[in-house]
Nucleic acid binder design. Sequence first.
DNA 1: CGTCCCACCTGATTGC
DNA 2: TGCAATCAGGTGGGAC
Length: 293
Amino acid sequence: MPELPEVETIAAGVHARVHGQRITRVWTSGKPQTFKSSESEIANVLNGAHIESVRRVGKTIVMTLHRDKTTTELLIHLGMTGRLLVSAPEVPFAPHTHAVITLHDKREIRFVDPRRFGRLSIHAENATKLGPPGLDSETWDRQSKDSNSAPYSGPGREPLTISLADFITLFHPRRTPIKAALLNQSLLHGVGNIYADESLFRAAIRPTRQAARLTRAELALLRTSLIKILRRAIKLGGSSVSDYVDAEGMRGYFQIEHKVYGHGGDPCTVCGAPIKKITLAGRGTHFCPRCQK
DNA sequence: CGTCCCACCTGATTGC
DNA sequence: TGCAATCAGGTGGGAC
């Protein structure tokens, strides 16, 4: 379900509501595939901890926890249908509630996920943050990413902050269709099906083009298009296509500005040609056959 | 290693 | 109307 703008909206909303709170109780549903770390480990780490912050990395929500001078992170990936809600205790549980984190003031952080593609896991900080002698900082960063040391940095690079030079370095060698490359989380993380389609439309690039065949100018336009669309979507609270809601249960509004996603057969807003829908990289892919070259 | 395809789930929508 | 097939915003593992 949620891509970068939706996860950003949820993380910011949850952060505003719960940072500084102490966790007094944890309940989990026992659905094994929901928990990448064991439920007992999750409960052990969370119980009694203070929530320092809640932020987004890629499509993952990262909750930073402090207890006994130890810092740990709870990673929450929402999959397709996951929700993270902050509720008063008297609000009835939604169906498919898989985790409830009770706070000192009695409110509850609830993880709800009908399709169960979402995952919870623990990311522990290593004792030392200093790299071993002889490693340059870039090598150390890479090793930090690979090993289990905090803070969690995700599988790829952040789309909102990547430089043009790095963007080109990332995509230029790829021989896959540009859309498949955009969806590859180990390159950029956070872009999903909606924002891949919308950014390619805005950049007038056909999703089927081989990444390696894009000119530098096209890659530059794709990067700025993607950043503008992600920022605009964050401003509107994300896209609510069916069941996405933020931490308060509110829908987002960026779906109103979708130009191609979900508009197969509709006339293109720029040229009037019917928007085409095809399957690419196993995903529904929407584009204007006239505008996107 | 890079890439493709499918499985993992439930629920809403489409089509017969 | 009823029921089956199809389709969903994501990821990870196995096959090639």
